[in-house]
């Protein structure tokens, strides 16, 4: 029963990872590519790691509980650092003077 939930969570995570990769390829410019890259990946990591932690702790021994907790610690760490990395990249783009892609600009020179 627990394994079924773990596999479902893992597949949800893989689905979000796929969305992130497709979004990175399809979106038109650098600013909008950051939206799927930074955060669909974070959500996918949360779900995949939750599934794997659930599969790890299912025999309920002391060391496996520790390992599951460490997997969740990775998720907490990524949730703190991922916005910071995204912000660093977008700040570099703004300071280098990259203009964001908008709809009007596209109509001017197609």
């Amino acid at each position: 029963m627990m394994d079924v939930i773990a596999v479902i969570l893992l597949f949800c995570g893989l689905f979000f990872f796929t969305g992130g990769a497709v979004g990175i390829i399809r979106f038109p410019d650098f600013y909008s590519r950051l939206h799927p890259a930074g955060k669909l990946d974070t959500a996918g990591l949360l779900m995949a790691m939750a599934g794997m932690a659930l599969h790890t702790i299912h025999d309920l021994s002391m060391s496996s509980l520790f390992t599951g907790f460490k997997i969740l610690l990775i998720v907490v760490f990524v949730f703190i650092t991922s916005p910071t990395a995204t912000h660093a990249i977008i700040d570099a783009g703004v300071r280098a003077g990259l203009r964001p892609w908008t709809k009007k600009e596209k109509e001017e020179h197609p």
Partner: peptide
Amino acid sequence: PTVLDRLIGVNAIGSKTTALLVLIGL
């Protein structure tokens, strides 16, 4: 097209590798 696009790609690969390492461990 730009360096920062490449940086986004590298960042996405890195966050997927974190999940891949735990899968290999399992």
